[in-house]
Design a protein around this nucleic acid. Structure first.
Lengths: 237, 237
DNA sequence: TAGGTATACTGATCATACCAGTTCGCGTCA
DNA sequence: TGACGCGAACTGGTATGATCAGTATACCTA
């Protein structure tokens, strides 16, 4: 039996902590550069592998950016960089089982329902203008399927933006990109663009009228329609 | 001007892809072991650093587990392992600015509101029994602050569990642990346990009655109370 | 002064050696 | 004969040094 509790920390973990501390404490601000690997190994009194492993880990977290030939730069952490960090693993998770995909679709429905309701409650006239602009931009992309889908995603993100919370924006963006990668929901064929645009327009109208219930209902109809096109899958909740 | 598009992929990235492919394709199933580093470097015709960097990255993603002396084991990807992956970065993000903390609190309110509404709509009698059990378990922990908080978190997670969606469970668990680390919301002092328990009880009653509106209102009151205790902070939405 | 090139710096990769855990079989002893 | 224990042969972890390959900069030239 191994001692699961007594984990011997690797050397690179210590280095990781020290570097992370230098960054989070502000000693090295956003955009500034870290010392070179060779300098760090001398300062910390460790070998180069320890430094490199720690810095790779920091790069994987999105805290720093490493480029060949340049010194590592400190990057800003945002909600978006957080979801980007998890992007690959999320794809793998979705590929692992179709059940996971169903769960994500359900999560998205949950998210969009609440989001549009919140938007209806607190949308300002400027928000409405932006939504209508996004809708018009999407209409201009009819015929260009990839651009139309991009505009579609932008519309939904615009709704989350009304909340003023970047976490919601990042979550919306991530969910949509994951679903898109699996060619499900949110997929638009030629011929269906008008339906999509009409539904979006109604959602905007409900938001503009501060009709939370109506906006939520319109959003649910919108999401269910695209889901139904892939066969009637009885989704819970 | 650097060519942002023409990024020269690192060798370890290629190795990473091949290893990730071996895992996701099922060639190496969950629980099985990867070949040793020395075997892999020979098979792929690369040096040990390339293998190590790739495997460290896989470990950071939570795809494999590396232990000194043993061969790397493939781990199952779950929604929970996904959030664990961003756990550290999330902490840093929250520490970076109090605004981020507000955003997270808002996200949690959003999440719990919708979740309890969904729970009220689809809760089965067994779900209600489990909720009441969780409440009783929490009552038994009065006097033991850490255990009481743990039980509190478990109660909220229990609500998400009704959805049957592991993503919701993982999100709930993550949000609560992040907020707890910042000693905000959800924090209970001695003397307030009874209030918390009473509010939880009412939430359960509303869920049992399939009263979505009432359950949501009760949950909002519950969350706002603990928030107010930290000073009246006008949160949007 | 503008341009380009040489040089010194950076990270990327490799080879090798050695340290430090884990596993497992072989030999010893009861 | 069986159980114990020790060690050999794995495993990953770390250090060192060399070399390759990008980048930035200072210097020199036109």
């Amino acid at each position: 039996m191994t001692n699961d509790h007594i984990v011997r920390r690797k050397l690179s973990d210590e280095v990781f902590d020290r570097l992370a501390g230098m960054i989070t404490s502000g000693e090295i601000g956003t955009g500034e550069t870290l010392p070179s690997e060779r300098v760090l190994m001398e300062r910390f009194g460790v070998g180069r592998p320890a430094i490199r492993e720690a810095m790779q880990a920091l790069a994987n977290l999105g805290l720093i950016q490493i480029s060949h030939g340049e010194r590592a730069k400190v990057r800003e952490i945002t909600a978006r960089s957080l979801v980007r960090q998890v992007d690959l693993a999320a794809q793998l998770l979705l590929n692992a089982s179709p059940t996971n995909l169903d769960h994500l679709k359900q999560a998205r429905r949950f998210f969009e329902r609440g989001m549009v309701r919140s938007a209806a409650e607190q949308a300002t006239p400027e928000d409405i203008v932006q939504l209508r602009d996004a809708l018009a931009a999407q209409r201009r992309e009819i015929g260009n399927v990839p651009a139309f889908i991009r505009a579609d995603m932008l519309f939904h993100r615009q709704i989350t933006r009304i909340s003023g919370n970047p976490i919601f924006e990042a979550v919306s963006e991530a969910m949509l990109s994951w679903l898109q990668a699996h060619r499900t929901d949110l997929l638009i064929w030629p011929g269906n663009e008008e339906v999509t645009l009409r539904e979006h327009a109604e959602i905007i109208d409900r938001i503009a009228a501060h009709d939370a219930e109506g906006a939520e209902a319109a959003m649910v109809r919108h999401l269910d329609r695209s889901a139904d096109l892939y066969g009637p899958r009885p989704t819970a909740g």
